[in-house]
Simulated assay, not measured.
Amino acid sequence: METKFRCNCPFTSALDVLGDKWMLVIVKQMLVEGMSTFKDFIESDEAIATNILSTKLKQLEALGIVLKTKLPDNKKSNIYLLTEKGLALTPVIGELGAWSDNHLREHHSSIVNEGGIELLRKDKTEFGNLLIEKYRDKLATT
């Protein structure tokens, strides 16, 4: 699966990969919410259609952001795991969350205001480090 890039600009190239409606949502679901199976993604609040999810997971895999593998105890089920390249998106996810927290509440008053949002407000770097640590701990037990 080849990615088409519009130009040589690094910002535009990143948006060519990550700027659609679903790519960062899927990465966020994996990193923040611990999702790893097709079923996890389908049953999420974001309600991604199966055909779109399938396409996006294949694109993320082709780009080396996600690795598709089998569950150790169930060789029939696929799981999707973030690679180091995928985990490198953690600061981007944190910045988007912080921007949303600061600038979208007046338009979307039901944005969550608990959990890790306090740490995100206080220290984005620590928030990101904690997400990565939790993700790696989860991988170690998978």
Rank of each mutant, 00 (worst) to 15 (best):
N8Y: 01
E106S: 15
E43D: 13
L130N: 13
V17M: 12
L60I: 03
Q59K: 14
R6L: 09
K58A: 14
K138C: 01
S36W: 06
M35L: 11
E84Q: 12
M1V: 05
L120R: 14
V17C: 11
G97R: 09
I132C: 13
G116A: 10
T37Q: 02
L15H: 07
V112R: 14
W22R: 06
F38G: 00
W22I: 04
A98F: 15
T55I: 10
K75H: 11
K75L: 13
D137A: 14
L81M: 07
E46M: 03
L57V: 01
T55Q: 13
A140T: 07
L87K: 02
R6C: 03
T55V: 11
L104T: 06
D45L: 08
T55L: 10
K39M: 09
A98S: 13
T142D: 09
L60S: 02
L104F: 11
I117F: 12
K76R: 11
T55M: 10
F11M: 13
S36G: 12
R6K: 15
N74W: 01
L87D: 01
K134D: 10
N51T: 14
S44D: 14
K28A: 11
N74K: 04
F5W: 02
I93S: 08
E46Q: 05
C9E: 03
S110E: 11
L119M: 07
G34W: 02
K122Q: 15
N129E: 15
L131G: 07
C9M: 05
I52S: 06
L131T: 07
